[in-house]
Structure formats: structure tokens, C-alpha cells
Design a protein around this nucleic acid. Structure first.
Lengths: 337, 337
DNA sequence: CTGAAAGCGCTTACAG
DNA sequence: CTGAAAGCGCTTACAG
């Protein structure tokens, strides 16, 4: 876990080689304009000659600053999250931060551990896609350390923090309305973790659409599961055992929808014809599924970009008021419904 | 880019509060058995009471060690790479490393910049999925710094380093043979960057299969492109303009295959019936495509795990001989060919 | 515009 | 088993 390295060339050595003081050399590395061009060149030369590599760690320690940002996500395999990460990462690198990545694999214990590690590494800020069921307490440690943070994707009810996410409720409302408009009365809602804010919000929209249409929800048609392909597969198998199965399915996300399609085929149904399906996320592959998936587009990359921007704002402004950014989704109608 | 933080509680303060010397407190934090249980408890208490957070950065500086590892990848959106990253990340976190993530977005300049940044951050080791066209010189900077490194996914001819990757040649051979066995004589090879080792190796296998069968390759059927869905789409449109179009297509990877399918449909062909298609990678979604994709499984996650293990070995053993690990692929026959 | 000295928060010999 | 002091590689006032 530890590994001693060949001795680095230090700034002192560079300074000595260039015949200046360490302070001067330090100013040169940091491009301070107060150094004459002549001196600067001499020092730069010495750096090149000796193969000097700036030690950002020592610099950060001394100046009590940080240019690293921690990013903790739940699961890279999830396309929504990986696209989110692209947005975050791209934006953060642009502004010059280096990112410490942590994956919680949806485990609260791992997330806790990662939070600690990040703090120990003196991150200047943190972007957190929290595990469902994260408690405020865990996260408030960050506030205590005065570390800027933005929460993304999943909102934590009791946590005071910047947040950027999707208007899941509206997306779910649009999806369910679409199915109702097509004449469906028995619409299942499959997948997702019942305690997560993302599930609850989708449930809200699903409920609201039913209420509006004067329909009542059959609770046997609401089956939760991990938000994965496997989860979708299991959920649909369960719901099909129902004596009165659904005629349409609203899926927690596109991954779940794939699993659902697989399950339907396995049971002899033809997805998109016998049973309509709507997904959520509009991951890039959803339009090459079989059949192409009707889904709700939720702009993961943009979510990441905005989260990174918000964090950057927080880190550069001392007086920063809390922000909450909710992106509006869009219904993409394809062949599955 | 910099951000001053509230003053941290230091180990000195803890020591004073506990009535011991800093050295003793330090030994406690690091779980040194040489400290009596009684003293340990007192110190632990003080830490809790004061809200102490270990400063790994200061510790690493002083002890000239590092428990961070840099991971530079080309593109998170690419499912092969993101799965690879999962493997790397999971393994690295298990052994207690924290990962600094960099994405080169396939730009040589960005990769160079990231390498510098990682060195400046004193990473203890590095896993590099190099941009195609990376030159040895760039990478050898690491060797100069004596930083352990393992190359993954793409091999760099002139670079001496551990490497873990896939036997692309064999995978490509299997895929092409499969198409030849089905009676195809005009097999296109679409997508991928012509200068990358991954492309060259696939080309080798494709060539070899043709030679074996006494077939000759029509160079008009070999079209390179970025290894993305968009790239596949463009490549197939180009190859279809051919007066004598192919009857089967071997795709650089599954993403390219999706693009190819889309392109075929757009031009009125029915993928898997009019024209057979084989992909490469076996990404999780490939079996829910339309039609389910015949492809070569290349174990991205395992690749990541092995890369991380190799790096860990290098970092913990001083005498480490160079290793080259090549994973064997597998043909997955589904409906597209 | 440049230099000498102190200090960021730890760990590391060295004594005892 | 514990303590006092030096030092990792930088930056930061403070002088000049």
C-alpha cells in the first residue's frame, strides 16, 4: 500500500542550480509576474535540465489549499451514471481540478469509507451521487469540515446542500399519461428502490396521472427491484404471475426496461405489441433495442456538467447561497409504446 | 481553483488534549502495536472529541509514500472502457488505494497533461489506457520518475511496461471464420482507428481467416472510423455506396455494430437477414439489440481487475519482472450472424 | 525584484 | 512504551 520513490528533484535544488533563492524559484513555478523575464528563463532552464516535477502535494499542504475534487458515484456500469460522470469530469478537468473517484457500489458502508478517505485527502470539494438510504448525519460530516459539496441525481431530504437532478415526477407523469392516452388501464410500474427519492418521485407522477384519469392503481402491479437489467427481469416475471397481468409497463429506467423485455420474451410475450413498454433515461442504446424503446430523456451528461459548475462556484465564491437545479425531462416516443 | 479551508484539528492538538507526545499520537493513528491499550484509548477518545481527521497528504509527504493511483482512460462513454474501469476501480479500492481519474477523451495533448498532473500529485502508480498514437517518449517520463505503470487495452510497441489486454487477433479470427463458415465471401471490416494496435490486431485476424479460406480481401470493404456508434453509422453508409456491397460485416466493436445496424435500416436493409453482422466486446446490452448481436466476448472487467493486480504487485515488490497478460476471447453466437 | 527563515501536518530516527 | 527534535517540499510574510 505504500511505496517509496526515487528521490525527486526539489525546488531548492533547482534554485541552487539557477543561482537564485528558493522563494524566487517558487514564484517562477507559479508564474508570478513579479519575477523578471531574465530570471524566469534561467530558472525554467534549470528545471528542464534537472527534470524537475512540481510537487503539488507539498504545495497544497503549505498553502492549505486543494485542487482536487472528490466524486463519489454509486455505479459506473449504469449508463446514466457513467454519462453523468463524463459531464462532471469533463467540466472539472476544464477548470483545472483533478478528480478523486470513488464508487460506492450502492453500499452505505463503502460510501462512508469513501467520504472519510476523501476528507483525509483534503479534497477541495465533493460531488456526491448518494446511495439510497444515506442519512443526513453521514453527509453532514462534510459540512463540519466546511467542504463544499453538491448532491446529484438523488436528493437527500434532510441534507442542506446544493442539488442538481432531474424532475422525475414530471417525466413519470409524461410517461404514464402517454400509456393512458393509448388506452391502457392496467399499467405496471417496475423496478427501482422504493425508499429512494428517485423512486418516490416517479411514483408520484405515476399516481398523479392515474388520479387525473380517474384510474386506480393495482398495487400488485407495482414491483420494486434493483435498478438493473437483472432487477427488471425478476420484477416482470413476478408481475406476470398475476392472474390479471398488466397491458403496459412503465419501467424505472432503461436498464430495467431491457430486463423487462427479456422477461416478456422468455414468457412468450412480444414487447411493444402484446404489452407496451416505456423506459426512463434515454440511454444512447435505447433506440437500437428491439423494439426501439419509448422513454423519457433525462440528460445525464448535462446533469453532470451542471453539478460540476455548481461545485466550482461554491469553491471559488465564499458567499454562496444554496442552489437547487432541476432539469426538465422530455418524452421520446419510439416503437415500444 | 484554490480554496482555503477552516483550520483542521491537528495531531498535535490531539496529542496535547490526550496528554501525550505527537509521536505517540502518530503511532496510534497508524495502529502501531507498540502503544499500550490504555494510551491508545485515551488518544482515540481525544480524536473523537476534537473531530480529528487524519491528513493523509501531510503523512504521504513526510513519509515519501503514496496511496493514490492514477488511472487514465480514453473515454468513459465506451462501455468496454467503463467496464474496464469498474474492474480496476473495485480492485484498487479493495487494496486500499484511492484513485485519481483522468479522461483523455482520445486527445494526445490531454493525455500528456494528465500524465503531468498525476506525477505532480505524487501518484504511487499508474494504469494507462493510452490514446492511439501515443509515443514512447511521452510515457517514458513515468519510467524516469520511477513510477510503476501498467498499460492496458492498447499496447504501445516501443514502451517497456507491464501490459494487460485481449487477444484481439484471435477474436477477430474467430469472428471472421464464423462468417466464412456461413458461406460469406464479401465480408466488410468496419470501424476502429487504423493506427491503433487494437485495429491492427483485428485486421491481422481478419486477414488470416481470409488467407486460410483462400479468399482475398476487397480493400473497399475495409473502412475505418472512430470506434463509436456514429463512426459505425458513417462507415456502413460509405461501404454501401460500393457497387458490389458486402454480404456480411465484421465490426470493430459492439458500439460500431449498433451504428452499422442503424445505417443498414436507414438504407432499407434488414440486419441479420439481408446482411450478417458480428460485433466485438459483448457489452451487456448486445443481447437485447435488434437482432441480438453475435459478438466476441472480451472480458473488460477482468482486464481491469488484472491490470490493477499487476500494478499492485509492482508497487509492493521492488523486484518485479515485466509481465504481459493476454486474455483469450470467446465467440458468442446470437441472431445477427 | 530577491533572499533568509518559519511553518503546513505529519513521520522518523534517536534517546531514554 | 514514550518524548523532543528534525525534516518531507513547498509557500508565505517580512526585509531589503
Amino acid at each position: 500500500m505504500k511505496h517509496p520513490k526515487k528521490k525527486r528533484v526539489t525546488l531548492q535544488e533547482v534554485a541552487k542550480h539557477a543561482g537564485v533563492s528558493t522563494a524566487t524559484a517558487s514564484l517562477v513555478v507559479r508564474n508570478n509576474p513579479r519575477i523578471s523575464d531574465k530570471t524566469r528563463k534561467i530558472v525554467m532552464n534549470s528545471m528542464k535540465e534537472l527534470g524537475y516535477v512540481y510537487d503539488r502535494v507539498a504545495a497544497n499542504l503549505r498553502s492549505q489549499s486543494s485542487n482536487t475534487v472528490g466524486v463519489i458515484i454509486t455505479d459506473i456500469s449504469n449508463k446514466f451514471i457513467s454519462e453523468f460522470l463524463v459531464g462532471v469530469h469533463e467540466t472539472l478537468e476544464e477548470v483545472g481540478y483533478t478528480v478523486l473517484l470513488g464508487t460506492s457500489f450502492d453500499s452505505l458502508a463503502k460510501q462512508d469509507h469513501l467520504l472519510s478517505t476523501m476528507l483525509e485527502h483534503r479534497v477541495g470539494g465533493l460531488i456526491l451521487d448518494p446511495v439510497s438510504g444515506s442519512n443526513a448525519e453521514t453527509v453532514n460530516r462534510l459540512n463540519q469540515m466546511n467542504t463544499p459539496m453538491v448532491l446529484a441525481v438523488r436528493e437527500l431530504p434532510e441534507v442542506k446542500s446544493d442539488y442538481v437532478g432531474i424532475n422525475y415526477r414530471k417525466g413519470s407523469l409524461m410517461a404514464t399519461n402517454h400509456l393512458i392516452d393509448k388506452g391502457h388501464k392496467r399499467i405496471a410500474f417496475l423496478g427501482g428502490v422504493r425508499t429512494s427519492s428517485t423512486w418516490i418521485e416517479r411514483m408520484d407522477g405515476y399516481q398523479y396521472a392515474h388520479d387525473n384519469a380517474g384510474l386506480i392503481i393495482d398495487n400488485n402491479l407495482v414491483v420494486d427491484s434493483p435498478p438493473t437489467r437483472e432487477g427488471g427481469l425478476e420484477a416482470v416475471l413476478q408481475v406476470l404471475r398475476n392472474p390479471d397481468p398488466p397491458t403496459a409497463i412503465f419501467c424505472f429506467n432503461d436498464l430495467v426496461a431491457f430486463g423487462v423485455m427479456q422477461g416478456l420474451r422468455k414468457e412468450g410475450f412480444n414487447p411493444g405489441q402484446d404489452i407496451d413498454i416505456v423506459g426512463f433515461d434515454n440511454i444512447p442504446e435505447s433506440d437500437v433495442y428491439h423494439p426501439p424503446l419509448t422513454t423519457v430523456s433525462s440528460f445525464p451528461r448535462l446533469t453532470g456538467i451542471e453539478a460540476a459548475k455548481l461545485l466550482h462556484q461554491q469553491m471559488s465564491n465564499d458567499s454562496h447561497e444554496q442552489q437547487r437545479l432541476i432539469l426538465e425531462p422530455e418524452l421520446i416516443v419510439r416503437e415500444s409504446a
